[in-house]
Design a protein around this nucleic acid. Structure first.
Lengths: 341, 341
DNA sequence: CTGAAAGCGCTTACAG
DNA sequence: CTGAAAGCGCTTACAG
């Protein structure tokens, strides 16, 4: 790594002069034009990067907690908005005590990005969307700073999860209460164990009822995926009379397919989705979407709170919190009296 | 600000001992339990925060460019996804040379957050969604680091904008080419001058055509806003036969209102929106939405590129780039032969 | 026009 | 069980 000293040595100047020029104060401090030129050229040639840490340290600025948020950079990026919203409001409420860095990564490659070295650069970490493989890496690593996992289970780290069982249970119970017979499930490939819990509990609860075994179609976690999956369901005889989707994206895609096929919702088929998207979108699609609502903003705030508490007490004892996931009845599966669950 | 030295002085210990305990290595280094306890208590009492900069500096880690992204923390937060996506991919493509911090702020309060002091903590800045008042603050300030404004005009700073004129022009031309007579406009209150350009150009171009003056309704920039605005339009006689919406949110809300009122799209009314949302959502709503598409991801990448170039050459000369905004015809306003514009 | 020196807060290898 | 010392890279007040 090139430093100011290196440049100074190369040009037989003092670090002071180099510093002044590189900060753009050469003219004001009357450094010879030619000297300035040589310094800039050498800086570029050596690929000099100012060390921002040294700068900050030198200025002794009021310390902030540096929080790193690891988020996967695939199509789940649009789920980041709500999570960030929660963090943002928490940060502002706390008088900007925290500086938030977003670190993108690819699943199964967390180990390349979250290293012992990188951990030194932050006070605490929130890890979102790790794959099973990433989780294995985490379970076998020792980082000596507070870490909280969002939406994952672990004994080693603090966790903020939601009630995955209820997410699967509620739709099954509601469909049963509505006297449905032919359930269907549009699910995306499980990227973490919680998703299996949701769909397994759903299927188990269905089997406990008087309904048929659900038709289960695996689709990609996009609107296109939901659209394609719903078209598949339309070919079935009989048509399913109720449908559980594991994400808003899937449900929204399905809505379009059913509309195009002339299938009426909820008359012919009721739909409940896992409400992981924007609530506004769930309300303003046609028909509006009944969901088991995921409290992403609150969970984000809780992640920050756990880290904040750890940091201020110097106690890194893992703490786990599971959030309830309330059912919100809308047009795609209206509330009846019976579903006081 | 409490430092390790302060704690050491208070307890008549050396900074070394305090450092060891606070890092959680007390047991391994066999520091007396009682000493550890006293250190932790004093640290909490004094509200000690480890100075992460000193830590990093001491470890002499490979330097990264620290980029701060200022983004308003209101309902525009959901627009951050696409922008971030662009930045994320750029960061990953560049081998993680950059560390990205997200700084939330409230409009008209940029001056409280983006201060001379805060500027020291970063290598370069991307500023998004400043209000006119925030812009005034920026124009009257001197920050000696590279800054790029996203979607704002300035002579002082680098800018990455889109072609606001075309955004207003295209819909007017297309509606004219389709022989429409009764145009309408659902617009949110302008939060920056570019928005006025879009709607003014639209209205001007309409006045140049054979159409009536457009009915213009100001609504909030949400689906609810679009829904309410569209209901207002439904009461008009004659019903507008074409509609320009200044955001996807507004258009999506309007779609629901028209659906509920039994108004057929595009037969009775064609709709074109400013495509600032997720393209997938524009495709899978009913009917799919024709938009003037905003290349947010590309613009984000360009912001980073400008900063990156400035940083590596030590040249902070403002640079301005405007991106084209292509029209994407979908069901809400299908392409005809005529609109080869 | 340029340089020598001090110090920001922390950690670690070494000494005792 | 604890401490003294050096040094990470930078900037600035001061000296010449």
């Amino acid at each position: 790594m090139t430093t100011i000293k290196d440049i100074a040595a190369r040009l037989e100047l003092s670090p002071s002069t180099v510093s002044i020029v590189l900060k753009g104060n050469g003219d004001r401090r009357k450094i010879k034009k030619e000297t300035q030129q040589r310094i800039l050229e050498t800086a570029m040639e050596l690929g000099y990067k100012p060390n921002i840490q040294a700068k900050i340290l030198r200025g002794s600025l009021s310390a902030k907690y540096n929080i790193s948020l690891y988020w996967v950079s695939d199509n789940r990026i649009h789920l980041l908005s709500r999570f960030l919203k929660g963090l943002q409001t928490a940060i502002m409420d706390n008088g900007y005590q925290f500086q938030l860095s977003i670190v993108p990564y690819e699943n199964n490659h967390l180990m390349d990005i979250l290293t012992q070295e990188s951990v030194i650069t932050t006070n605490a970490i929130i890890i979102c969307n790790p794959s099973e493989f990433d989780m294995e890496y985490l379970e076998n690593s020792e980082f000596h700073i507070p870490i909280v996992l969002y939406n994952r289970y672990s004994k080693k780290y603090s966790t903020v999860t939601m009630d995955d069982k209820t997410i699967g249970l509620l739709p099954a119970k509601i469909f049963a209460a509505h006297g449905k017979k032919h359930p269907a499930l549009l699910k995306s490939p499980a990227t973490f164990s919680g998703m299996n819990i949701r769909t397994n509990v759903f299927e188990f609860q269905i089997s406990e009822s008087e309904m048929e075994r659900p038709v289960s179609v695996i689709v990609e976690d996009t609107m296109r995926g939901g659209y394609v999956g719903a078209l598949t369901l339309c070919d079935l005889n009989p048509l399913p009379d109720c449908l559980f989707c594991t994400s808003d994206s899937i449900a929204l895609g399905a809505l379009k397919a059913f509309y195009e096929q002339g299938i009426r919702i909820p008359d012919q088929i009721e739909i409940i989705s896992v409400g992981n998207g924007r609530p506004e979108q769930e309300e303003y699609c046609v028909p509006s979407l009944s969901v088991v609502s995921l409290p992403l903003e609150d969970m984000a705030r809780e992640c920050l709170k756990i880290l904040s508490d750890s940091l201020s007490t110097f106690q890194y004892i893992p703490k786990s919190i599971a959030f309830p996931t309330p059912y919100i009845a809308r047009e795609s599966c209206p509330a009846l009296q019976e579903n006081a669950l």
